[in-house]
Amino acid sequence: MTAAVQETPVRTPVRRPQRRRPARVVLTVFLTVMAVGWVFPVAWAFYNSLRDYDFTSTHGYFSFGGFTLDNYVDAWTRGNFGQTFYNSMVITVPSVVITLLLASSAAYVLARYTFKFNLALLALFTAANLLPQQALLVPLFRMFLNIEVPFWFSDSGSLYDTYYAVIAVNIAFQTGFCTFVLSNYMKTIPKEMTEAALVDGAGVFRQFWQVVLPLCRPALAALATLQITWVYNDFFWAVAFMRTGDKFPVTSSLQNLRGQFFTDYNLLSAGSVIVAIPTLVIFFLLQRHLRAGLTLGATKG
C-alpha cells in the first residue's frame, strides 16, 4: 500500500523518432540472450516431448522429425497421473490453508502486540527455516511410527503411511517462513487503522479478520502461490512417511517414468510438462497478486 505510493512515477513515453543509443542496443542484446537462455531448455524439453524416442536415439536430439503425441498419452497412463494429481491435491490444499491460517494468526500477534518474548519468538520462527529438513527425518519418522491410532483412522495403526503425517510436517515447516513474511507485511499496515477499529468497538478477532487480513490479501496470495508450488513439488516427505504406492503425490509419477536402468527422456519430458501445468495455472491466476507481493518487506515499515 505505502509501497505503491512511494514508487517513482512512471515517465510518460515521449513519442519521437528513436535514435539507437549504444547502451540501448547492448541492453536489448543482453535481454534477448538472457531470455533465450532461460526459455531454451524448457522449449527444448517441450520440443522433444513431442518426439519418438527411437527416432531421437538414432538421429540424435539435434534433428527434426519423429513427431508424435504418444509420449503424452503414455506418460499419463504410465505415470498414473489421475490418481497422483488427486493425492497431491489431498496433501496440498489442507497444508496450504492451515499453514496460512496459523501463520497469519501468529504474525498478527507478533506484529501488533508488544510482549516480552515477541522478538525472540519471531527470531525462532525465522531460525527454524535454516534447519535442514533432512536432519529431522529420522526423529519424525520414529515419532509417526510410534503414535498409535485406531485402525479406522489409519490402516497402518500409526500415523506412518498416512496423509496426516505428510500434511502435519508440511505445515510445521512452512509456518515459520509464512509467519516471518506476514508479520513483516502486517507491520507496514498503519497502526491507526486497527486503532480506529478498536475505538469503534472491534475486538481482537474482529480487527484481525475484518481489518488486517483483507489488507494482507496480496501477501496471502503471494504466499499461497509459493506454498502451493512448494508443497506440490515436495517429494521427500511423501516418500519418507508413506509406503503405499497408491498414496504418493504427483512427483512420484515423474519418478515412475524414470526406469530402473533405462529412461525414455522424451516420455519424461512429456510427464514434466503435464506436472508443470497446475503450477502454471496457479501462477497465472495469482500472478497479479504475486507481483504486488514481491515487493513486500522491500520498504521499511
Binding site: V93, P94, T162, Y163, Y164, D246
Partner: peptide
C-alpha cells in the same frame, strides 16, 4: 475437509 480427504484415502 482435511480429515475427510485423509479418511477417504485410508478407506481405500
Amino acid at each position: 475437509a482435511g480429515a475427510l480427504a485423509g479418511l477417504s484415502a485410508c478407506g481405500g
